[in-house]
Amino acid sequence: MSSIRDTLLAAGPQLTTRYTLAELSPARIGEGAGLDERAFTETFDSVLDYINGLQQRFMDGLRDRIFKLTLDAPPGLLRVKLASEAYLSGCLEQRALRSWLIEARAQPLVAAGLRKQNQVYWLIVGSELATKGWPHPQAAGRLYLAMINEASVVEHRAGQVVTSVREALWDFLERGGPRT
């Protein structure tokens, strides 16, 4: 049996088809989840807290997808590339929800949550790059995360895969490492 929190969060994607981020309210979220405003206010501090929860849930889903796709891949650049493809495609598939999440990044609470999640990812990417002898692998992982997030925003605006952006990302993976 899912918790009230899960029920409210599960309603998020459906709510994106009805409301903009600015139109969102505790009453609308509660109603969209088949509950009421009180269920919302007893579970979340604010609409932004709810958005933060949606972001966490979205990133958890992406993480599961990435792990599944890369489970059998050997460590290294190919695995980073596969993970990146999975991340970017996952973002495109939930475009309406991503509209909310991208807009909400301007809010410090949501930005801080995203930063925390990014930090975990850049450490993972950094470990992959370390296996290929990259100098400063954690720093490179941090920059790669900034770039892939930007790539996801470019594709979000375009509403489709942007080949040049993905090729630019792969080029960094191929040429950004040890001096050639």
């Binding site: 920059l143 995360l145 900034a146 997030n149 630019a168 080029d171």
Partner: peptide, 21 residues
């Protein structure tokens, strides 16, 4: 450079991240 617009966009993000750090 290949894909100058895309590369510029991605590296601007990298430079902004560096400034933030």
């Amino acid at each position: 450079w290949p894909h100058p617009a895309a590369t510029a966009r991605l590296f601007t993000a990298a430079v902004l991240e560096t400034a933030y750090a």
